[in-house]
Design a protein around this nucleic acid. Structure first.
Lengths: 272, 272
DNA sequence: ATAATAGTGTCTATCAGACATTATCTG
DNA sequence: CAGATAATGTCTGATAGACACTATTAT
């Protein structure tokens, strides 16, 4: 009954004798694009970590690290997130795997990119004095990406150009970033950012990811600002409220939105 | 001007002296889920390859292979597709990266899964006499997956159970497969299949992937059957035609659909 | 002729886009 | 009160779902 291969080995014998060989293997990391809303819900913020060593020493980079043998990429991303920011239990999902040869100048490294969403911006600081971590303002338009932090006097800007990509009989538009500012993101982390924003925009209408970017209770004007910040365009109030109405329930309380002046707002929570 | 790290090295010096160390690294493969429509456009077909050696010797598996150091995962997937099926220039896109420890009994192996779509089923055969390759009928319902090939007398069936997965404040439904038949797919390839179908269903309305599953010219009844096969449910003719109307143009000719009997049909082609 | 397929017309409900109006709160 | 924000009403146009009807072709 036991199948034997050409060498006459059963599966058990084959595995016991298996020699992994000395083929070259890549290192595999996870990189995490962690997003949150800024104080007045007017735009997205992204968490970056300053590199304390070569390569890209002094550049800002996405948090992340190597995957270990006994864990999944998801577990590694959770671990890195906790180690580097103290956060756990937040939204975390795989985006894309980046494999371009030469993307890390040290050696052959692939990166499985994750998108993480946080309800409240938490204080973060680098894990040692050589490195630094902070939230950056993120502004994405049709033709540029700007990542900035006034306090730290950092402003990283890329211009975006559309490029057509043919896949089978269909065509995509891809965004190709070109560095404009003096400062830059480490490695190919702009590309991870672009891919993550693209997927978030595609999915936010049909998923519930927006609720991972507001607090547990929120007002509808706040929630609308989250959608507007992600999509990068204003929405009509009535249409938005019709669209969202079956995903939320009133808590019965009132709440002052985090904007100056004006009438008090009804408080809602996520329905499920 | 040159930044020096704690060890007093510039970036150039650092990279020249860089020792990749002997950390354990995973092998990384691509696996390709290649789909096409069957003869009468009534259901999807998937290409499988019979394994000629351990592990999973004699089981059917997705085509794929190891990524080499000087290529991207996309290039590797293209190469494997060409080597194993002779196909090139078809739709090919990254789906998800599978990393569960133990998914390959030999050693630590991650797999970057790709979805490929073919316009016409081509003849395929294994690259040597020990292995075999063929198209299988694929039937996916809410509670089971069936992969079968009558000629080869193979029938692989998994039942599906929904499992709730909490991610941040939102919840997903994931499908967990349980083997029902005697025969099975190799490795975690059912999970790749499930993930690929899920993404294809999510995207087919908002992308143009369906046009990668019909020939260059087609009839609207044919195109509708492609959508129905992918989505696993019937669509209303009029709604479908309204929805699709701005993506297609008439060629001016007539064509007999690949169904028996009935009136002749107008021939269309993809607009862009 | 019959059955199967191809193609169009129409009604309804829903919903996004676009404005307008009313209500409430702060200063 | 002025100015800002919150909430709702209403009109239009587009579209999915549902069903009916006409047209054409193979057997």
């Amino acid at each position: 009954m036991e199948l034997k291969n050409k060498a006459g080995l059963t599966e058990k014998e084959f595995l016991a004798a298996y020699d992994p060989g000395d083929y070259k293997r890549p290192s595999v990391t996870t990189d995490i694009l962690l997003l949150g809303m800024n104080e007045d819900y007017s735009s997205l913020k992204v968490l970056l970590i300053k590199r304390g060593d070569h390569p890209f020493m002094g550049c800002w980079a996405l948090p992340g690290g190597f995957i270990e043998e006994n864990e999944t990429a998801y577990m590694a991303a959770c671990r890195e997130l906790r180690e580097e920011t103290g956060l756990s239990g937040i939204y975390l999902d795989q985006i894309y795997t980046f494999t371009k040869p030469g993307r890390d100048p040290r050696t052959w490294v692939m990166s499985i990119a994750y998108l993480a969403l946080v309800q409240t911006l938490s204080e973060v600081k680098g894990d040692d004095d050589a490195s630094d971590a902070d939230w950056f303002d993120l502004r994405v338009s049709d033709d540029s990406i700007e990542i900035s932090n006034e306090k730290k006097d950092v402003r990283i800007v890329y211009s975006l150009e559309k490029e057509e990509f043919v896949n089978g009989v269909i065509r995509y538009e891809n965004f190709i970033p070109t560095l404009v500012s003096d400062e830059k993101l480490a490695f190919d982390h702009v590309e991870i950012l672009i891919e993550a924003i693209k997927k978030l925009r595609e999915h936010i209408y049909y998923s519930n990811q927006a609720f991972c970017l507001v607090e547990d209770t929120f007002t509808l004007p706040e929630l609308q600002r989250v959608y507007e910040a992600v999509l990068g365009k204003p929405l009509y109030k009535k249409s938005f409220r019709d669209m969202i109405s079956d995903k939320v329930v009133e808590t019965g309380k009132e709440k002052t939105s985090r904007f100056k002046g004006g009438r008090r707002s009804t408080e809602y929570k996520f329905k499920y």
